[in-house]
């Protein structure tokens, strides 16, 4: 199958180094402490954050830092086939862990000892790159909740099909069976907080694909920062002028 035409267009009309259209909205749910809704093309994700609050199970409380708890779930209607998805299946446990780990790397947990931060991420519509979208949405929700962080974590996937590195694979490209590399990055420090890959790649190609994914992360980070600034500005307008 031809995923990149000789004219240099992918199946959906993007060029190899383009990400899908990105849309984000903050503070979409008012009961939560922080929430964000994020679209990467047709992948749509909702993230909510509760906390920092008292640790619900005392025994789990950590005396020197905050406890981060993450739950990932996929809506029954998120894929073409409606399927009831049990909580705690292997995939969602793994994804919860992955999201928690990359968030823990960004949150300044030592500033919030003996507290708990809950992150709930729900996939509303899946079209490839859910992992990256979940991480991005979680970052925005944390930022909305005002949790102190080193940087916004940004995440993006990249793949390698028809001898071309491709950025931000959608579902069709993802199911081609080629390598799929998901990277999460602290863009300012250029520190990788997550790196996962299915399938295998020769080392030199891997570096090219990794480089592309990191560039993608940075572009997404810039976009998210912009959205965050705009959201803050709007809130400032609502609250009235702030004098510093």
């Amino acid at each position: 199958m031809e995923y990149v035409s000789p004219e240099g267009l992918r199946l959906d009309g993007r060029r190899p180094k383009e990400v899908r259209q990105l849309k984000c909205e903050l503070a979409v749910l008012h009961r939560a402490d922080g929430s964000a809704y994020l679209e990467m093309g047709n992948t749509k994700v909702l993230a909510t954050v509760y906390g920092p609050h008292e640790v619900s199970q005392r025994s789990q409380s950590l005396h020197d830092r905050a406890l981060v708890h993450c739950e990932y779930s996929m809506a029954t209607f998120s894929t073409g086939e409606r399927r009831r998805r049990p909580k705690g299946d292997r995939r969602s446990v793994e994804l919860s862990l992955v999201i928690r780990q990359s968030m823990e790397a960004a949150i300044l947990t030592h500033l919030l000892p003996r507290t708990q931060i809950d992150i709930y991420v729900q996939v509303l519509q899946a079209d490839g790159g859910t992992r990256a979208a979940c991480i991005n949405a979680a970052t925005l929700a944390l930022a909305d909740a005002g949790v102190p962080m080193r940087d916004l974590v940004a995440s993006c996937a990249a793949g390698y099909l028809n001898g071309t590195p491709l950025l931000d694979l959608n579902y069709v490209e993802d199911s081609a069976g080629g390598p799929d590399l998901t990277v999460a990055l602290l863009p300012k420090a250029e520190k990788v907080t997550l790196l996962q890959m299915d399938s295998k790649l020769p080392l030199d190609t891997f570096e090219a694909v990794l480089g592309l994914a990191m560039d993608g992360c940075k572009a997404i980070a810039a976009h998210m920062r912009q959205a965050l600034l705009e959201h803050t500005r709007k809130q400032a307008v609502v609250r009235g002028p702030v004098r510093l």
Binding site: D12, G13, R14, R20, Q21, G41, N42, G80, E81, D127, N170, V172
Partner: peptide
């Protein structure tokens, strides 16, 4: 045999 609703992006340039 199943009917699926397929939904794909299509970018115009």
């Amino acid at each position: 045999g199943k009917i699926l609703k397929v939904h794909r992006e299509h970018y115009l340039r």
